[in-house]
Amino acid sequence: MPRINSPLKPFSTDAFRDGKFLTVTDADVLGKWSVFFFYPADFTFVCPTELEDLADNQAEFDKLNVEIYAVSTDKHFTHKAWHDTSPAIGKIKYTMLGDPTGHISRNFDVLIEEVGMADRGTFLLDPEGKIQYIEVTAGGVGRSATELLDKVRAAQYVASHPGEVCPAKWKEGSATLTPSLDLIGKI
């Protein structure tokens, strides 16, 4: 099972982005922050609401230099068909990875083997390809892009400010903590 600071495992797959098919590999991910957003399947119910929420917030992810990779075990052809027919999915400008073999889903340990679909898993990777945040929810529980943005901002802040940590409910611009002996028992 992936853990915090686990490295991205090698992969190569077909994808759909901006009306085009392309190949994406693990090497393409390195060098910027990235979110791997696993979902069970195209043409479903909760999934389009989550993917639309990400699309509606993409400008904020772009400002943070975060690349979004939506991943399901569908083929890239299916991603295109869904993009072309669903108003919600038609908003998507980020990359949709096809994972028909389940290889990437297995790499992140979110593949439900008996049904061949991924759990709802969210993974934030730093520019070195190391996992900095993990969230896995039950199939009927949708995720929030704004909550994810808060996690991204906190992870980026901590990465660029060694010695500081972000407390619960931290928002960009809020006070952080500097762990020390003097702080113990005073929070």
Results as ranks from 00 to 15, higher is better:
H79W: 04
F108H: 07
I112A: 07
A70F: 07
H79D: 03
T73A: 09
N107H: 12
L97K: 05
Y69E: 03
Y69R: 09
M117S: 06
P87I: 07
H103F: 01
A70C: 11
P100A: 02
W82C: 02
L111S: 08
R106E: 15
H79K: 03
F77K: 12
F77H: 12
E114N: 15
H79V: 06
G116R: 04
P87F: 01
R106P: 11
G102T: 05
N107S: 15
D109F: 00
D109Q: 05
H103P: 03
K80W: 05
S86R: 07
M96P: 06
F108A: 06
D109Y: 05
H79P: 10
V110E: 06
E113F: 08
L111Q: 00
G98D: 05
T95I: 13
T78R: 08
S86P: 10
R106Y: 13
D74K: 00
V110A: 08
D84V: 12
T73H: 03
T95A: 05
G116W: 02
H79G: 01
K91M: 14
N107R: 09
W82A: 00
F108N: 07
G116V: 04
D99N: 08
T73G: 01
A88F: 12
G116Y: 05
M117H: 04
G98I: 04
N107Q: 12
A81T: 08
T85V: 10
A88R: 13
T95C: 13
M96W: 01
D74M: 02
